[in-house]
């Protein structure tokens, strides 16, 4: 659990983070969104004490983060820096191994971990391990940066725009990988992004920041349904709102009794995907199956009802 209590950061006269408080539950993903310069990075860096707050307290599992030396604290908090921050004079493998080496892991264990992470991020260990960062594409560098942050299996992972430089295909893949990793290790993740779509897709909760202030801290559904201010509303993009709402839920929850013609969709598909398929093929209804067995159907009418603003 990460408790952020009345955190303020001032640079000279300028307050870049103003009295922010929120609690991140263990084993969840919290996404911080906001315009450029709204203090997202500063807030994130106060958690691992790369920035010292002017006032306020941050507690990790109930302990003040100033209770241990800063370098000790940082070795147990993964940090994927904005940009990628790879060490240019070290190979990809050495970069990923940084924290395990600092923690004194054995060589075999480090090698195994490096290979595991490279494979996880679709980078062939034999090809990419010995390369230097400047021999990678921007997207590959970014994935290595995330792999380095994950290397020592930290309980807490801070990620500053980790997928910014990835193309949509790799980006979607990286997001799925992150969700899988988070499920597998139960990592608590705080992730900064500009991309509302990404925030809704990944976040258990979303923290919206504007000019250093925390405007709203809520689940994606709540943010979509009841944006706290006009600013949050602009951020969501009102035009996409119904579709974003549909994208939060699987069609399993929208199944109606009955049958329909054509190819079936799996129950785990999102309601948005189902609606898109229906509109595109000009049909009224689609069969839905779970574990290969038909369980009913979804209809355009039913989905449209679910896309309406919740009461």
């Amino acid at each position: 659990m990460i408790e952020i209590e009345n955190i303020t950061k001032r640079y000279g006269e300028v307050e870049v983070v103003s009295d922010v408080s929120f609690v991140v539950q263990p084993r969840t993903i919290t996404v911080i969104v906001g315009t450029s310069g709204s203090g997202k990075t500063t807030l994130l860096r106060m958690i691992n004490r790369l920035v010292e707050p002017t006032s306020g307290v941050i507690k990790l599992d109930g302990r003040d983060n100033r209770a241990v030396p800063a370098y000790e604290l940082r070795r147990h908090i993964g940090y994927a820096i904005q940009g990628h921050g790879l060490f240019p004079h070290r190979t990809v493998a050495q970069n990923i191994a940084t924290v395990p080496v600092l923690l004194g892991w054995e060589k075999d264990r480090i090698d195994a971990r490096v290979n595991e992470l490279l494979s996880l991020f679709q980078l062939d260990p034999a090809t990419f391990g010995p390369r230097y960062p400047h021999e990678l594409s921007g997207g590959q560098q970014q994935r290595v940066g995330v792999a380095r942050a994950l290397a020592a299996e930290p309980n807490v992972l801070l990620m500053d725009e980790p997928f910014g430089a990835l193309d949509p295909v790799i980006r979607a893949k990286a997001q799925e990988d992150l969700l899988a990793i988070q499920k597998r290790f139960g990592t608590t993740i705080i992730l900064v992004t500009h991309d509302m779509e990404e925030a809704i897709h990944l976040g258990n909760r979303i923290a919206v920041m504007d000019e250093g202030r925390l405007i709203q801290y809520a689940t994606p559904a709540e943010i979509l349904a009841k944006p706290a201010t006009p600013f949050v509303e602009t951020l969501i993009g009102t035009g996409d709102r119904p579709f974003r709402l549909l994208s939060l839920n699987e069609i399993r929850e929208a199944v109606e009794p009955g049958t329909a013609e054509g190819e079936a969709l799996p129950a785990s598909a999102t309601q948005r995907d189902a609606l898109a398929e229906l509109l595109w093929s000009g049909r009224e209804a689609l069969p839905v199956e779970a574990d290969g067995k038909p369980i009913g159907r979804v209809t355009v009418e039913g989905l449209i009802r679910r896309a309406a603003r919740p009461a």
Partner: peptide, 15 residues
């Protein structure tokens, strides 16, 4: 020395 490398070095917990 690139500021990002320095920053990352602090971030991973180097003294």
């Amino acid at each position: 020395v690139p500021p990002a490398a320095n920053d990352a070095a602090r971030g991973v917990g180097m003294t």
